[in-house]
Design a protein around this nucleic acid. Sequence first.
DNA 1: CTGTTAGCGCGTTCAG
DNA 2: CTGAACGCGCTAACAG
Lengths: 349, 349
Amino acid sequence: MARPARMTDVAKTAGVSTMTVSRVLNANPNVKDETRERVFAAIKRLRYHRNELARSLRDKRTRQIGILVPNLFDPFFANCAHAVGVVAKQHNYSVNIAISNEDPDDEFEEANRMLHRKVEGVVVIPATPVRGSSQLLLPEFSNLPIVTLDRPVEGSHYDSVVVQNWSGGQMGTRHLIALGHKRIAFIGLVGNLYTMRMRQQGYREAMTSARLKPDMQTVTDAPETSVSMLRKLMAAKRPPTALFCANNLTTRHVLHAMQTLMMHPPESIALVGFDDFETADLLRPGITVVRQPVESLGRIAAEALFARLGEGKHGPPKHIILPVELVVRGSCGARLPQLRHLPKPVSSS
Amino acid sequence: MARPARMTDVAKTAGVSTMTVSRVLNANPNVKDETRERVFAAIKRLRYHRNELARSLRDKRTRQIGILVPNLFDPFFANCAHAVGVVAKQHNYSVNIAISNEDPDDEFEEANRMLHRKVEGVVVIPATPVRGSSQLLLPEFSNLPIVTLDRPVEGSHYDSVVVQNWSGGQMGTRHLIALGHKRIAFIGLVGNLYTMRMRQQGYREAMTSARLKPDMQTVTDAPETSVSMLRKLMAAKRPPTALFCANNLTTRHVLHAMQTLMMHPPESIALVGFDDFETADLLRPGITVVRQPVESLGRIAAEALFARLGEGKHGPPKHIILPVELVVRGSCGARLPQLRHLPKPVSSS
DNA sequence: CTGTTAGCGCGTTCAG
DNA sequence: CTGAACGCGCTAACAG
């Protein structure tokens, strides 16, 4: 058993030099058929496989990309990562994954780890910088192709792939306005995320241009704060009649809070969320959402990265914006012919 | 700009040899303080960082592990991968991720890719072999530490981490029996997955030892088949009064089917599922489930792998079985003091 | 068509 | 305390 066979082992068994073995491996035509046979035989007999590490060092090409996400328990991020993985496989690349935990310092550390490991490029869902600008802008990364996903890095020249956050915020809000609502609260997440800001601006535009007054609220990631937030909101003199939840997580938190307070959409209050989720159509009523194309987001980001690795090496930055779509179910109060939007099937354990 | 600084660059700038730089980097005490200073200064000035690729080649230690999962859109797998990533970061390791797509050939290919890239070990959620035994048993992997997660590889000596599938199946079924049900159908997934088999056996045991007749059904991953399956089931002379859904996915499919058929748990039929999911407690009624410790599953598998990489190199195979837990909500028909089981908070986009 | 030489960037000898 | 030489496994350049 011992150590795996090296190229010299193959060369020896086949009675040739390592160079010839290398040629055979790389499908170089300048090898006599009979020699090639012998080499193949030796390779097979010794179960030889190239040491990709050595090859990478020599070639200065690792055939490896990185993907850096805040976490993998958020289905949104996981789906993005999945799509990137699929594209990488198509290109015969390996994927190095790391978790930033939404922490800029962790992100920096992991990006460096990837850099030193010589990944050829990185797809990153950037963490929001706490102070100053993103460390992804530091000069050490200036030669590393980076594509940002879901959120851009402010002040960067990196390719970016995002969705229509602003329009989506506007779209969801307008829908509620069209249903007759005048007091609509926007529920966001603390932390100044790019996506939150954009969606909020879309909301604000829709409100003001309908001569309505915006009402911004935030929830943290603790379910309890959602309850008190909602309670306070409803105790106001003129409480909102509708809520716009800025993402997947806030939607779920608000729904939990509503359950605790024995509230029920759309009668107690209408609700529209941003980002679709599994079982959104299983709840009663189904949750009306602005859906984003999660699959495509990851896929297109990965493809943009591979474009950089290939020809478009030095092209100008690409900024891709993917469309969102309003999926009307029951929680907004609209009574539509029961459209059913099933989530895509998944295998499971 | 240009290429990143190498060790020789640092050596030159500091007026020493590369060996001294190496010593400084590896915190070797045998360097004069003043020399060390000079080296550090040079490192900083040149923004030098070790080329981990070269180091790996030299050391025969890549500080890299692999994780091989069927996909990342199933939250179960994604959560496992997340936990592995967290543990790897604690050990200062990089993670190579690949997707098997539940296909043994893809799995084999990706495992090989990792092997040739010299990962030090792999955590794998094995794909179910279609014919014969798993290709993970082939001799090329005999020197690669492997820990199997969620499903074992039959006939292997690999460490494994699974949950109490059998007991969980029994537990869920017994709960329904205790509630007075006599005709309980088991709804599984096609494909002969290990977890399905085990849960089914637990179900079967609970049924037969209560002198009841087991009734196995399967659904594919297409929602439509769930509808026809359920319709057929309910059209029987003596239709079941309760369903046990063998995983997350079947549970959702069945719930969709029930919605289509205007059925409603627990009145139309009682329901217990295996594997908890986000929003299981937001549905009305909440879904009673056998919950598995997804976090721990991934974490413990990764820890088992690192144990192999450290001391326990040659210890006997470890087979770890994690407990499951019955979470009673409303769908089974039990009327309990409203326990509320919130899913753990997640950040999001 | 095939082999020899050299070196990717690092770290481990073993001399000084 | 420091450095020179060698090799990890592979391949590009240059012979022959």
